[in-house]
Design a protein around this nucleic acid. Structure first.
Length: 890
RNA sequence: GGGCGGCUAGCUCAGUGGGAGAGCGCCACAUUGACACUGUGGAGGUCAGAAGUUCAAUCCUUCUGCCGCCCACCA
């Protein structure tokens, strides 16, 4: 047991001084570190690794605070709790940052060369990659820093290579030419999940393609007129009578005078646009599929810089075999080298001049944007590596049908399952250098060798192809390929480590909704395949953070908030955390961040701090930690606050268990401020409370601090340390045990009546305009006589003199407490008149209800009895108010 | 087009099949020692609209409207 160390506390709790000091102490004590311990139940969370380019934002404030709270809670429960941190190399994002840095020095990536570029990248990572960890420390997060991992650590890289090789050997990774999402800014492909749609105003251009026979031909509608140069057909719906006569005939592309066939395909919607659609297989996903079905050629007209090429060319895996299609080249030269959007303007003008542009109709469409660069994605043919997803998705779906993982809130499980059901092959190769280079080599004849390292590749090549002259594929893997292994790669997989044995699967994955497709699905699929189990029992999906007006937070809108620089200096880490959690609702999908909650949370901290000061300043001093007097020595107020404390701890425990962090935060604030400070602390100032109050205040604060510690780690540590306590730090203290907290329901009810009386008194004083200097005489029921001192004390503001009456259980308001000559009679009358009207309407409502035979017959007896009791009460009150009104005279 | 969430006091949000809640803001009052980063009281709402189920609906069902999100090959 340690006694109170510092009797002279400042009036205000100062987070700026206290928080860094406590965090440093926790680190020195190693409280966040755990070793696998089969004797205790595990509680493991793998931290979603932030990008090394990342900065703290409010998303971390919600999602990562939730993880910290859960880990701290389960640690206090005595579980083998560990939060495993790390970082993601964020291939494209990081490379973009590096390219910008180099540009400032007048350097380019290609000029520097791969080796030098990667040296720079690692140096950058060393220098800036840990910044977000500092932010996390400022926020009080306590992951197991000793276990920090990076997706490009040797161990994790080995896991990546093994997974690639195994999937390749199993025939689930293939190389092929497909239409991919090309980001012309970062010069790399993106997976479907990395493409975001954004609505933009544009036009729908209607263009006439005349018949080859000189007829009217057909009018197509398009949002991308610049790609018409590479059209290979016009498609209509098979049952569209308007165009049936044209199917099988040719129409002619304007300007370039190239003839293309009209074909019928189910994918065309007869009621959209003109019902006829141009088919450009090399630049549109739907068209690509139509092209495949009809075995159409796939000429390309836009290059990897998003410029129009002239002439057209035919994509080939080997650049030297890419053949120009120069038949129409002379007529296209005007567009050669133009950016796709400039080309669009020129082509529209030229078509208009030619009379081929039938109509230009304003139109709002969704543009595919790169989530990395915000550039408009260009669908392009390219030779890339893919993962066949269906065989991976099937076991994941089966597991989900058996209930694993469990989603909280449950509805996100349906989103997840729908994603698995509609899964498409995953493009995993990226044309950046920063990342895991594909373990793929080619012979001079383009024979493919996949191997974990170069020596093994050479051995295989010699054996199979009689050569060890190899060149390695320059591409790297999609960042999500390595993060998809996260929950097991950070535990040492493929080695069979103790950590992997005891800590896989994790108990919960906490993440945001938008990551379900990008990440959660892939972790499950890969975890199932390579470790044989779903990597986590629960997936807790936290709400997305928006600003007060419901707009997404973003740098460009200028409404982004960095909690460490924008909130912690103002409210402290505790205030920031509590303020955010108070707004987190389990079933809600968005959180409109309102800073007022942080302000409230900070003031709550000060309030508790002062309750602590009050407790420490008690003249009679404090007993040892968690020592309560025997029940006979406790006052009614003591028994009430202990009962309330127990209820609070119970609520908070259930809330944490169900991930309802907002409910836990509410309950703690409600109890701490309004129940404990406003009523109990005040009550202890009444005469007759001295004998027990020190012990009870100390006991309640100690238990309350522990219950609130997961949410507000610093303040609660400081309170706990200052009061008598057992142990070195609250971080490893035990969760309040309900069995330790006595409960006295009957006494609690009595004190509840005290509160009601006092509130009525205060209300009366205020409503009736009783001046501070004036006193009024009030009466309380005989049953409260023993608590007279408390009522008197709490009612001090009302300047009340207490008398006892024995008239049953009537309320104070009705008794009217002889107000002698001090109250404003007019105000009193007004008040009573209003009160009488209210009671009359309540009586009428209740009478009507009870007169309803159906109600009596069908409602449950409890409800009917309660309604009768209410009616009696209303009638009694009404009679008293009327009596009082009469007594007022004129 | 499909799916999902929301609509409760000026603002941000809890909540419940049976007498509408919190914080902030607003108004009034209170400064003799835990705290002015305070305390006390008050005003303020046809619980989006309509229909249905029910003895009883803000809550359950259906429809409508508006806001938002996700998915999908509407050029």
């Amino acid at each position: 047991m340690t006694t109170a160390a510092r009797p002279d506390l400042p009036k205000t709790y100062d987070p700026a001084e206290i928080e860094p000091r406590l965090y440093a102490r926790w680190l020195a004590m190693g409280v966040f570190h755990e070793e696998p311990d089969p004797a205790r139940p595990p509680f493991i969370i793998s931290m979603p690794p932030p990008n090394i380019t990342g900065r703290a934002h409010l998303g971390h404030g919600s999602t990562y605070t939730a993880m910290d709270v859960l880990t701290r809670y389960h640690r206090m429960l005595g579980e083998n709790a560990d939060w495993l941190p790390g970082q993601d190399h964020a291939a494209i994002a990081t490379e973009a940052v590096l390219v910008r840095e180099l540009a400032k020095e007048g350097l380019s990536r290609d000029g520097l060369g791969r080796e030098k570029f990667l040296e720079r990248a690692w140096a950058w990572r060393e220098q800036y990659g840990g910044e977000i960890n500092e932010a996390f420390k400022v926020l009080g997060f306590g992951p197991d820093w000793e276990r920090e991992r990076f997706t490009m650590d040797p161990g994790l890289s080995a896991a990546v290579i093994k997974v690639f090789c195994d999937l390749y050997d199993d025939g689930l990774i293939y190389r092929g030419t497909r239409l991919v999402n090309w980001d012309p800014v970062t010069q790399s492909t993106l997976s479907d999940a990395e493409v975001e749609d954004e609505e933009r105003d544009t036009s729908l251009w209607h263009i006439r393609y005349r018949g080859e026979d000189g007829g009217e031909g057909v009018v197509i509608a398009t949002t991308r007129p610049e790609t018409y140069l590479a059209d290979v057909a016009v498609a209509v719906h098979p049952s569209d009578a308007r165009y049936a006569h044209l199917v099988g005939k040719n129409v002619v592309l304007p300007i370039v005078d190239r003839a293309i066939p009209v074909i019928a395909d189910e994918a065309v919607l007869a009621d959209f646009g003109t019902g006829a659609v141009k088919v450009t297989p090399a630049h549109d996903q739907t068209d690509y599929e139509i092209g495949q079905r009809h075995d159409l050629p796939m000429p390309t007209v836009i290059d990897f810089d998003a410029r129009v090429t002239a002439p057209l060319w035919r994509y080939d895996e080997k650049p030297e075999r890419r053949a120009p299609i120069d038949a129409q080249a002379p007529r296209m030269t005007a567009y050669a080298g133009l950016d796709r959007f400039d080309a669009r303007k020129r082509i529209v003008e030229d078509l208009r001049a030619l009379g081929a542009l039938v109509q230009e109709q304003p139109y709002r469409t969704k543009l595919p944007l790169s989530s990395r660069s915000r550039a408009v994605i260009e669908p392009l043919l390219s030779l890339q590596w893919f993962v066949t997803m269906k065989p991976l998705a099937e076991p994941a779906l089966e597991a989900f049908r058996r209930g694993s993982p469990r989603f909280v809130p449950e509805r996100f499980g349906r989103t997840y399952a729908a994603g698995l059901e509609n899964i498409r092959d995953w493009n995993i190769s990226r044309q950046v250098w920063w990342g895991h280079q594909l373990p793929v080599w080619y012979t001079a004849n383009d024979d493919v060798v996949v191997a974990p390292d170069e020596n093994e590749a050479k051995r295989i090549a010699r054996e199979r192809y009689g050569t060890d002259e190899l060149r390695r594929d320059p591409d790297t893997l999609d960042t999500w390929f390595s993060s998809g292994l996260w929950p097991f790669s950070i535990l040492g997989w493929p080695e069979r480590t103790t950590e992997l044995e005891h800590w896989y699967p994790n108990q919960v994955m906490v993440t945001a909704r938008e990551i379900i497709f990008l990440w959660v699905m892939r972790m499950v699929m890969l975890g199932l395949r390579f470790v044989g189990r779903v990597p986590f029992d629960d997936v807790f999906v936290t709400p997305l953070v928006f600003d007060l007006h419901g707009r997404k937070m973003s740098k460009s809108l200028g409404n982004g908030i960095d909690p460490t620089t924008d909130l912690v200096p103002k409210y402290g880490a505790d205030g920031t955390r509590l303020g955010i959690l108070r707004q987190m609702r389990l079933e809600s999908q968005e959180l409109r961040f309102d800073e007022r909650f942080c302000d409230e949370a900070k003031r709550f901290g000060t309030k508790l701090w002062n309750a602590l000061r009050y407790t420490l300043a008690l003249p009679e001093g404090l007993p040892g930690a968690n020592v309560l007097p025997r029940a006979e020595s406790l006052t009614v107020a003591d028994k009430w606050i202990l009962t309330e404390l127990r209820a609070c701890v119970e609520t908070v425990t259930h809330a944490y268990d169900g991930y309802a962090l907002g409910v836990a935060a509410d309950a703690l604030l409600q109890f701490g401020w309004y129940t404990f400070c406003d009523w109990y602390v005040e009550a202890t100032k009444a005469p007759g409370q001295e004998a027990s109050r020190g012990a009870v205040l100390s006991f309640v604060l100690n238990a309350f601090a522990r219950a609130m510690h997961p949410i507000a780690p610093f303040l609660t540590e400081e309170i706990w340390q200052t009061l008598p306590h057992d142990g070195a730090t609250i971080v490893t203290a035990s969760w309040p045990d309900l069995a330790e907290i006595p409960s006295f329901p009957e006494d609690a009810a009595t004190f509840h009546t005290v509160i009601e009386k006092v509130e009525q008194l205060r209300n009366a004083r205020s409503e009736w305009g009783i001046q501070p200097k004036d006193w009024m005489r009030v009466e309380i029921p005989a049953s409260l006589e023993p608590e007279r001192g408390v009522v008197e004390s709490l009612a001090t503001l009302a300047r009340a003199q207490i008398a006892t009456y024995d008239g049953g259980d009537g309320t104070l308001r009705d008794r009217i407490l002889a107000v002698r000559g001090v109250a404003d009679t007019a105000k009193l009358r007004e008040r009573y008149t209003r009160e009488a009207a209210r009671l009359e309407s309540e009586v009428a409502r209740s009478e009507k209800k009870l007169a309803n035979e159906a109600f009596i017959a069908k409602a449950s007896p409890d409800v009917v009895a309660a309604e009768r009791a209410k009616l009696d009460e209303y009638r009694r009150e009404l009679a008293r108010v009327r009596e009082a009104l009469g007594a007022l005279g004129d």
